[in-house]
Amino acid sequence: MREVKISLVGYGVVGHGVVEVVGRKRKLMRDLGLDLKIVSITDHTGTVISPDGIAPEKVIGEKTLQNVKNSDASSKDIIRSVNSDLVVEVTPTNIVHGQPGLGHMEEALSCGKHVVTSNKGPLVVAYSRLKKLADEKGVMLKFEATVGGTMPLISLIERTLVGNKILGVRGVFNGTCNYILTRMAEEKYPYSFALNEAQELGYAEADPTYDVEGVDTAGKVVILANSVFNMDVKYSDVQVRGITEITPEALILAHKRGYAIKLIGEVPALTVKPMLVPLGSPLAVGSTLNAAAIYTDLSETITVTGLGAGRIETASAILSDIVSIYRTKQIDAIF
């Protein structure tokens, strides 16, 4: 049995999901030979540390760690000093400076700890630096949850499609935009109406700029460009246009001619823009779904679809990343 001690940094929606999923899948993980223990959880209020593993029921009902913390050390101190093998970084995303996640990841990798994250910011800002640091320290940086949430994309390209030359990736990478466009097309709602509905249902933030202006999708394009295509690009290299100018009339016109309008991110073109997608295309997914088409030389086009966000869904991608780190060494190794 391989014991894996995990430090969880960030205890918002995804952090809660990680605690829940690790708890729920404990037996399955043990059957696989992995004993996953969350030994510390940190948020902006403090840290809970328990070297034998934190019982999910002790923290899951707490919105923050205010009432259960037993340390006030800084998050970087915790990452460095707590005895852990792996850091799960799920603090809020900032794609301008990447903090606080960037500092957390650098600290963890420098200490020789694997990093698994759903936080796009640090990867958009400093992917090459983080990757180099991970390679130097002989540890892994895994980030499946940053692009397309639970939809397997990076691992699909890196592992399953290995041997293929990846010519490009195109996809619907933002569930909020997709929900808004779907509802506008279905109900002939104006944009502002559909946005309000998405906000009421919790699919869009009070300030939706990040999603609807294409910023979030562009962040994912940068991550794919840097990780899959080794491009070393920045956010400012992406040509971005959001969905705010789309009218219900445009959607109706498109639909009559057999097209949906989707916000499409594309690599290596480095574009984010609304595009016409044939209604029969596997990329023409509705509601909050994400979809990605991978264009390859041997396998032609492979399309995946799935939920791009959500507490449990994102945690699921994080769990897969954790397992893949240990599988790399034990099961899939080439001798």
Binding site: E245, A254, P274, M275, L276, P278
Partner: peptide, 12 residues
């Protein structure tokens, strides 16, 4: 003007 192009126009 917002120009919305079809995805099949530019093959990757």
């Amino acid at each position: 003007l917002l120009v919305i192009e079809p995805i099949e126009a530019e093959a990757i």
